[in-house]
Every structure is written in structure tokens, then in C-alpha cells.
Design a protein around this nucleic acid. Structure first.
Lengths: 215, 215
DNA sequence: GCAAATTAATGATTTATTCAAG
DNA sequence: CTTGAATAAATCATTAATTTGC
């Protein structure tokens, strides 16, 4: 309750772009005036902290990362445009297999292993694996939901029944529930010396293992 | 077309109980059975690919990461339990300042810089900064929504008027909208040699700068 | 005054929705 | 139309405030 004098009202329009201020209002806009310094030399900095160095608007249209980094598989598909992952049949097959096997949200290690395997069949990155599971899970879910609505009225909705036809619903109780520490941890991978340098800067969190569920 | 396409890493999500499906609404006894293996040695492996090595259930109750890594600020608050970030007053102050200055979703570089600054005042990581912005934005939004519902009926809501008192709302023509490529890119930071090793494994995606909105 | 019990804030994840490339 | 990519909303969980009983 200390703050909040902010009064942004939202228009909830469908668009999500955020280069602008997502919910309209607040003409504020970072990244709008291309290089207009925040003419606010007020500097209410706290100690030695300079605000302006952060609010810098977009800097410059950062080039796309140079396609050859250190990681470029030897004989991959080459991916012409290099925009988005285009999975091969083998890759999809394996992923589906894993999914059917019960994998839903692989952790970082698993993702890495999977990626390593799948990269034999074509260019792929960890994020692709990650997103694939996210999307596949979500889409199987909505597909199943549609089906359920279509042909059953009973409020039974036994969790996981109509779904994926080939899986014998396993007992798989196992909600784990061990008192894991969450323990995420991000790190920055050495930002290049030049602050304006827009090469891949890595910032990564890692990700937790289980979610304790005691309350 | 060959230009821009910034490459900033974002964050990884994930990993949780990968047991059953969706909505906890039907409260099917979560957290009851502890440690039941998914007894499903089905293995329909494709070729030389071994499914089981991936579907491994949770492996082992991963300890929390060893509190001393390489990164432990010199004279920070020490963070007793070390579970979740506990921001200091200075940190919050700076973050709010940035927020009021218009920053909403800092990119990796910005996050890194902010983190660097804030770590002077206490232990903090990049993800904390990221999450702070996410949460703060969302909560300001809902707060405002509540307010709007509460006290105005007039559909007037002149866009951008009451808001942020210290910022002269700029004309903001030029909604930029440059055709950046999305270009995320994750990388794995050398997984340790032991596959069972559950030390912090980093997996990081990066995150976009602007969302092109041409359609 | 203080600690256990309760509530309020808010950090951290997950899920749903949206955008856009192919 | 399919689906990879990205974001925002909803949710969970933990810590700090605070209340309460002694």
C-alpha cells in the first residue's frame, strides 16, 4: 500500500504487443522515441545508482544473433531461414513416444538429453523440446476437452480417460510431494564487455524438480 | 530481412510434478502417495533411443543446491534460509523507480545490469528481477482493475491522463513495430558428466525484444 | 514482552491465450 | 490450418506482518 499512484487503465484489447505499453494508456513508452534520452536529469538516484542507464529506449535494433556460434550441429538440415524449428519425422516420433510414455514437463537435464538425441535427426535446441511438450500437452488437453463435451454428459470426468487412446491409464499415483527446495538459479553468462553489444546474453534459470504441495 | 532479431534470453519454466493431468479442481488426492514409481517399463524405443533414460521419475529427492556456489556476494545480507529472494528496501525502491520510469519487461541485458546494481544492496539474481517485473505489472493491473470497477461508471476513461504523475506523456507516434525476428535461443551450459547429478543445470531461453505485430 | 497462530503480501510456477510462420 | 513461440492470467507457496494468549 505504499505505492500505487499509478493509474493505468486498460483497454483489454486482444492485442498483446508490448513494445508499446501493452494496455495502451500511459504514453510512457520505452522504445518509442528512438533515442530520446529521458529528459529527466532529475536523477533521484539512490546512492550511486543511475536510472537513465537502464531505461534506455531499445538502444538499437540489435542484429540477429550471428547464425554460427559455437553450437551448430555438423550435418544438420541447415535450416534456411533459421526462424523456427522445423521438426523432422524422427524427432516428432520420439517426442510423441516420450509423451505417451508419460513425460509431460521434462526438467532441464531431461531436456538436454532429449535435445542431444534429437539433434541427431536434425537441428534442434532445448527450447524447442521444452515448447513442444508445453504445446503438445495443452493441445491434447483441449482436444480431449472437446471430445468430452461432445460425447459425454456425465460429470464423471475421470481424469485421463478418453484421452490419448493408446495409453492404458496408469496408476501412476505419484504426486511426489517431497519437500524439495525449489532452488532455481539463474546465472548470467558473462555479458560482453560492451554494453551495447547484443550478442546472446544468457540468463538462465533452472528449474525445479517438484512442487511441494503441503499447505 | 536480414536484420534485427534480437536475442535475449529469457527464462525457463517448468519442471513440476509430471504426474497427472490438469486442473487440480477435482482435487484428486494430490500429495498423498509419496514416491510411487510410475511402474511403466513399457519401452517402445525407436531404434537406438532409450526411452527409459528420460522418463525416469524424479530420480532422487534432489537436495537443495549447495548454498555456496561461486556466487555469493561479499557482504550481502546472507540470506538465512536462502529459499526465496527477500528484497531489501533499496532494491524495491530502485525497481519501483524503474517501473515508474516505464520499464515493464526488461530484456536480458537490462536484467543483468539491474541485477548487478541491485546486488549491491543484497543478494539477488536475475530471475528475481524478471519475476518482480512480471508480478508487479500483473498486480498493478489487477489493482487498477479493481479500482476502476469500484468507482467509475462513466465509460469516459480518457486514455492516459491520471496516470504516472511525473512523466509527461510523450506523443509517442512511431510505434516502432520493427520486424524483429523472434529468435529465442536457449543454450545448455555444459551438463556435468554425471547424468544423475542434479546440480544446477542451466537451460536458458532468451527473450524477445519487441513483438512484431504485422499481420 | 514473546512466541505460536493467523493473515496479508508477494515471490515463483503453471496454465491458458495469443501471435504469427510455414 | 497447424503449431512453434511468447506473454499474461491464475495459482501455489513461503515469508513478513499482525494478532492473540499467556
Amino acid at each position: 500500500m505504499g505505492l500505487s499512484s499509478m493509474k493505468v487503465h486498460q483497454f483489454a484489447r486482444g492485442g498483446a504487443l508490448w513494445g508499446d505499453d501493452e494496455y495502451s494508456s500511459s504514453g510512457l513508452s520505452l522504445g518509442v522515441c528512438k533515442r530520446l534520452r529521458p529528459l529527466n536529469p532529475k536523477l533521484t538516484t539512490t546512492g550511486a545508482f543511475d536510472l537513465r542507464s537502464f531505461i534506455r529506449p531499445e538502444s538499437s535494433p540489435i542484429q540477429l544473433v550471428s547464425p554460427e556460434h559455437k553450437k551448430d550441429s555438423p550435418q544438420v538440415e541447415t535450416h534456411p531461414g533459421g526462424t523456427r524449428w522445423n521438426p523432422t519425422q524422427e524427432q516428432i516420433g520420439i517426442l510423441e513416444m516420450l509423451y505417451r510414455g508419460g513425460m509431460r514437463t521434462p526438467n532441464a537435464q531431461q531436456i538436454e538429453q532429449i535435445t542431444a538425441q534429437l539433434s541427431k535427426y536434425g537441428k534442434i535446441e532445448g527450447k524447442n523440446v521444452f515448447y513442444w511438450f508445453q504445446n503438445h500437452k495443452a493441445r491434447e488437453r483441449q482436444k480431449q476437452k472437446r471430445n468430452n463435451l461432445g460425447l459425454t454428459h456425465s460429470p464423471r470426468t475421470a481424469p485421463s480417460s478418453t484421452m490419448i487412446n493408446s495409453i492404458s491409464l496408469k496408476p501412476r499415483g505419484e504426486v511426489v510431494e517431497s519437500p524439495y527446495k525449489k532452488c532455481r538459479s539463474w546465472s548470467f553468462e558473462s555479458l560482453e564487455k560492451d554494453e551495447e553489444d547484443n550478442k546472446t546474453l544468457e540468463l538462465f534459470p533452472l528449474h525445479p524438480e517438484g512442487r511441494s504441495r503441503s499447505s
